[in-house]
Amino acid sequence: MSAERVIVANDVRKNYRGGAEGAGLNGFDLEVAAGTVVGLLGPNGAGKTTAVRILSTLLDLDSGEAAVAGYDIRRQAREVRRRIGLVGQYAAVDEILTGRQNLVLFGRLNHLSHAAAVRRADELLQRFSLGAAANQPAAKYSGGMRRRLDLAASLIVAPAVLFVDEPTTGLDPAGRIEVWSAVRDLVGGGTTVLLTTQYLEEADQLADRISMLKAGRVVAEGTPDELKAELGADWLDLVLADPAEVPRVLALVERLADGDVRVEDLRVSIPVKDRTRALVEVATSLAEAKIEPEDITLRRPTLDEVFLHLTGTGV
């Protein structure tokens, strides 16, 4: 089994002197099996980007050990760089250059011949549906297109490991879906992906396993289903019209709740196991009791609630 672990991090520590921008790492451990997608999930400042920058050899660590694709990230950084692709937080493409020129440039810097770089650029442009925009400057691309170009640039030489740092931050929903489908395609090709994200939904959509990061260390790890099972419920939120109704509603929904019901002013939040059944039953009982809520919504637990549940403290 150990031969298949393409990313191993052991008690990695990194302190930013002067407490500057980045969040440090404080005993960070990680194991990623070949051909899987691991989501590094955590709030801003948890150290996600720091972890990616260290593993992709951009940043030195203070102590601990890490290896990527079997090579030590400190002593064999060059070997590591031959085997990784990096998609940083900002679409790292030259905006003045066209999509094709960008890919040819990065192909040449991967030491492909000119002909091979052009060929590879055209393949990738097709694969990421950028063929029609190939000769347009990247500045004219939408956020989602730029991200896709960025992904393409990191795949010029099929990497063993791809680091993707917050791929959809700042994208509109359409761009987000474009990028998700691009990342899914990659995984189809057998690439191991380490993905960081602030969005539970994104990790859920893309990752085989999730590591939850808080204050520079992994606080929970598992498949999305395992984590959700641990976490249990979705939430059914009711917003009532009249404070007097709150006790009546509490009495009605008690038997449906899978955990403690929370009340905040006119909002009643009920943890539920079976989303649809709960919704139907709550709606029916409210109708029978002639209570008309202002709003009724089903929602997934927020990242905050996940952390609250798993660590006992908020984000």
């Binding site: 992709s56 951009l58 760089r81 990096l86 790292a92 905006e95 640039a153």
Partner: peptide, 18 residues
Amino acid sequence: VSKGVTDRFRSLPMSSAA
């Protein structure tokens, strides 16, 4: 540097002096 292009260069197996 601010657009991340420098980071991309640095993560490539190219000569860093380049």
